[in-house]
């Protein structure tokens, strides 16, 4: 005979604090992984492209203008720009902020390398976000419109960087962004299980550090071109205005006063 037992009182009263895993529920997995992926492709890809393109400035205003013109001459460039740069960047930035504000950094208590990196990834993310907002606004959506006036690109940037404050901001942002990207690649490999082992992660860490440092160096050298006295007072525009849909051949003769060495060679 079994005793008719009254319902047992809850042995575990309702949990407070961090709640258990919501097994298989919700969509945060998708969004979080998308965030991770967008950081690499396309944003990471764009960052590399951007730094390499800017490095053309080393070759003078005209070369730089040609690079700008080339990029703006890509088919469906506006679609590409929005679909592969602005929208992913905006998503990565906003969701990144969402991630960052939900973390509770404790590097003050546990000052370990990985924990510092965790913290720095968030700091650099914020820096990059703030920087990119102003950068996109000031360089892409205000002032001379570069898609139409690629020849004005060098001067526009040069003007910006002649302000020492802006220069400082650009340098900091360059370092921060490259760190964020390089460490992001490392994180991507670790989190997606590409480098599960301790050794794989360490070796890949060296690789990421090398790539990040290299990229940053390229970026800074490219940046230096704009303040290089050699190119001081670059002409406001080195090219005729580009009509939408019409791609004019690049001038083969450097405009007057140009000190563009590459143009000089072509002559």
């Amino acid at each position: 005979m079994a005793t008719a037992a009254p319902p047992a009182p809850a042995s575990n009263p309702t949990l407070r604090g961090v709640q258990p895993l919501r097994a298989g529920q919700g969509h945060s997995y998708f969004w979080r992984r998308l965030h991770s992926l967008t950081g690499l492709i396309p944003i990471g890809g764009f960052l590399i492209e951007h730094i390499l393109s800017n490095y053309e400035a080393v070759n003078g205003p005209l070369a730089y203008a040609q690079q700008v013109k080339f990029l703006n001459g890509l088919p469906l460039v506006r679609v590409l720009e929005w679909a592969f740069i602005f929208i992913p960047l905006l998503y990565h930035a906003l969701y990144g902020v969402f991630i960052a504000i939900r973390g509770r950094s404790n590097v003050n208590v546990y000052p370990w390398a990985g924990n510092w990196s965790y913290y720095m990834q968030r700091v650099t993310g914020y820096i990059a976000f703030a920087y990119i907002v102003q950068h996109v606004w000031r360089q892409r959506f205000s002032g001379v419109s570069l898609p139409e006036h690629p020849g004005a690109a060098f001067a526009k940037v040069q003007h910006e960087l002649h302000n020492p404050w802006m220069l400082a901001i650009y340098v900091i942002a360059m370092v921060a962004t490259c760190w964020h990207f390089a460490y992001g690649v490392w994180l991507f490999a670790a989190k997606w299980g590409i480098t599960p082992g301790e050794k794989a992660r360490r070796n890949f860490g060296y690789a990421c550090a090398a790539v990040g440092t290299g990229l940053c160096a390229l970026g800074l050298v490219g940046m230096y071109a704009f303040i290089n006295p050699k190119y001081a007072n670059a002409p406001a525009d080195v090219m005729p205005e580009q009509q939408p849909g019409i791609v004019l051949p690049a001038p083969s003769v450097a405009p007057p006063n140009s000190v563009n060495p590459s143009a000089a060679i072509r002559n």
Partner: peptide
């Protein structure tokens, strides 16, 4: 935790 003392039935 609650220090309550209680009996539980069983066979």
């Amino acid at each position: 935790r609650s220090m309550e003392t209680q009996t539980f039935p069983c066979d």
